[in-house]
């Protein structure tokens, strides 16, 4: 029975958002592999040029951002956050290339936000230990247990729905403009693309990354996340 389902049939049945997410992820992976091969040839003493400058700037910026928010534990988080930021940004602006943005599908955004949720809980467990982590749910008095649990469950829901709603509203308004104006939409669509795809996509990427950092910082013990100390060190 399963053999009857050919690959083309499977590909036809999945939704357009997932389809474009697969295509974009593959293209991005190929580009990143090529950049990685070029980076391996590059020695630290060489003069950086071309794409290497961009990659260096990106890594530097993400390192600084993580360092200023969560302190000394930034080293393991910065690569993950850079990956998420690149993927989300390319997903959000893929409307410019004629794709349906993958983040306009609830399943894609919830995949991102549930990953963040697991990461937040893992950071809480690793930094405080199981006992203290469970005890933090009874903070400040045991009566607050349901509220603490709700505030934890609200993390993936709010993150996922925020991204989904923003990108979907942009997509709906764009398709309304294209449907109503027809060929005349060429006159105003560049400005709308600039706002809804580039600006909104960038802001949402930034917000997703910052909120991930803030939620993780909330799980860490207080002495690690002194904002002003971290700013002076970096």
């Amino acid at each position: 029975m399963m053999m009857a389902l050919s690959i083309s049939q499977i590909f036809r049945n999945i939704s357009p958002s997932i389809k474009s997410s697969i295509i974009i992820t593959f293209i991005l992976a190929i580009i990143l592999i090529i950049i990685g091969i070029r980076l391996r040839k590059y020695k630290p003493t060489d003069e950086p040029k071309g794409i290497i400058i961009v990659i260096e700037w990106l890594v530097e910026t993400m390192n600084e951002m993580c360092k200023s928010t969560i302190g000394k534990r930034y080293k393991k988080l910065a690569p993950y956050l850079t990956t998420i930021a690149l993927l989300l940004f390319v997903y959000n602006i893929s409307g410019l290339l004629g794709f349906r943005p993958p983040t306009a599908s609830v399943s894609v955004t919830f995949a991102f936000s549930i990953t963040t949720f697991i990461l937040v809980e893992v950071y809480g467990l690793k930094s405080q230990g199981l006992g203290k982590h469970l005890k933090s749910y009874l903070d400040p008095i045991p009566l607050f247990l349901p509220m603490n649990i709700i505030s934890d469950i609200a993390i993936p829901i709010s993150l996922g729905l925020r991204l989904f709603g923003n990108i979907l509203s942009g997509l709906v308004i764009m398709s309304l403009v294209y449907t109503v104006l027809g060929w005349a939409a060429v006159a105003i669509s560049p400005i709308l693309h600039l706002y809804f795809d580039l600006f909104s996509g960038f802001i949402q990427t930034l917000v997703f990354c910052m909120l991930t950092l803030v939620f993780i910082a909330g799980k860490l013990p207080d002495e690690e996340v002194d904002y002003f100390d971290n700013m002076e060190e970096s």
Partner: peptide, 19 residues
Amino acid sequence: SIMLLGQAVSETTGLYSLL
């Protein structure tokens, strides 16, 4: 940057009503 971040977060309630 702080203003844009705060605005994007507070926009969420509007997006809930949109959904």
